[in-house]
Amino acid sequence: MTRIDKRFVELKRQGRAGLVTFITAGDPDYATSLALLRGLPAAGADIIELGMPFSDPMADGPAIQASSQRALKAGQTMRKTLAMVKAFREKDDATPIVLMGYYNPIYVYPVDGFLKDAVAAGVDGLIVVDVPPEEDVELCLPSLKAGLNFIRLATPTTDARRLPQVLANTSGFVYYVSIAGITGTVAPDLADVRAHVGRIKTKTSLPIAVGFGVKAPEQVRAIAEYAQGVVVGSALVSAIARSLDAEGKATRATVTGVLGLVGQLAGGLRQPAAAAAS
């Protein structure tokens, strides 16, 4: 069992869905990003997605594109991202970390060395947006062999015929992309999402996390009724952006502001819905 598997078992025992938080490694700078990362579990994050910055994030909206640019400008590299995970692991051996991003920085690392270093650093899983099942031999199969979870995205365009192929080598959890679009843009139609998640549940026993376009505590609560995880990303990196000074540097509000927002989002998952309504 990976930390991800264990965490979902624990969430099930608690009878609630998990909050999956996304931040980009190195945004707005290494030290602030590490402080954020270290603060996330106490603020209420159950699983952490750590973005590997890339110059050309084609599946991401403006908020995460800007976040990637800030990190790269501050000198973030893949080696630093792995170092950040290692530093986090010194103090937290339970919270799962999933690295999320695009294939090229992994490909040039190269793949074998990356997987070895990622496992050594304490990474639990990978989400690599631009490696579909058709290219499984590239990264998915080597990742599974290295002992990492490979988390695949299912989308509104993944039809019944294609779903088994998407699920085949997926492990850890299934990430359901709630909109046909890029991250953090339009709000998902929650009834639609529920139907899709229900459909996927009939085909897999893996937990399902829902993301892309989830921003508000009430969306988080609504999705938590039928999914095992809710992913929030653009809202958090937007909070980072808002907290920066005129030169784009972190302020005292950066870490507290973002962790405060995580706390609000997590709150909705940790109390019974009836109590939240009253």
Binding site: D130, E134, E135, R152, T155, G181
Partner: peptide, 10 residues
């Protein structure tokens, strides 16, 4: 190859 996001794959 076909290195695209799942949404585009179909």
């Amino acid at each position: 190859g076909r290195f695209v996001a799942e949404t585009l794959m179909p």
